[in-house]
């Protein structure tokens, strides 16, 4: 039967029509397919127990801590950021603001698995205007976590 599907010119290497040899209608093979069926995920068990490991759960030796100061308003102009008190504290490695991020890095995008959705390129820290509540505005890197959080409060953000 297979030979009837192949024209004489196509003799030689295995013909494309060879796929008809796989009989997809046989029940034994149907049961093995993942298409159209619910497949239990292997990772769900550990994620549901809180036993997953995210990057924040990894403790590396000598790693610095970073605290992020975020915009408390849905939309706000950033009038001024005074990081001098934060920089002066012991243990503080670096304070970054939007201007420094723009000078040192490029635009980043976000994954938006929606067809036709615009990519919304942006910098890691807000520039002149923060456009959503919780947008990162200033970051403080320090040798330990407490030293990161405290100076972040001292990096006074004047937000209009």
């Amino acid at each position: 039967m297979l030979s009837r599907l192949i024209s004489p010119r196509e003799k030689g290497p295995r013909p494309v029509t060879d796929v008809s040899i796989r009989d997809e209608t046989r029940p034994a093979q149907r049961e093995r397919t993942v298409l159209g069926t619910d497949v239990p995920r292997k990772e769900d068990d550990r994620l549901l127990r809180g036993a997953g490991q995210f990057t924040d759960d990894v403790d590396r030796a000598h790693s610095a801590e970073m605290a992020v100061g975020r915009c408390p308003y849905p939309h706000a102009r950033i009038a001024r950021i005074d990081a001098s008190a934060a920089v002066a504290l012991d243990g503080v490695l670096q304070v970054l603001t939007g201007a420094e991020v723009a000078a040192r890095s490029g635009l980043i995008g976000i994954l938006r698995p929606v067809p036709g959705a615009p990519p919304i390129p942006h910098f890691a820290l807000a520039q002149e205007t923060a456009t959503y509540e919780g947008q990162p505005v200033v970051s403080v890197a320090a040798g330990c976590r407490a030293n990161g959080i405290q100076p972040n409060r001292k990096a006074r953000k004047k937000i209009a």
Binding site: P40, D44, D45, L47, L48, R49, G50
Partner: peptide, 27 residues
């Protein structure tokens, strides 16, 4: 969350989440 199913099988609530695909990245 660690209290929900200490060492044993998933709790009914956790099992529901699994059955209903109520998690993706799990964060």
């Amino acid at each position: 969350v660690e209290s929900l199913a200490a060492e044993g099988p998933l709790s009914p609530l956790q099992e529901r989440f699994r059955q209903e695909h109520a998690l993706q990245c799990g964060f």
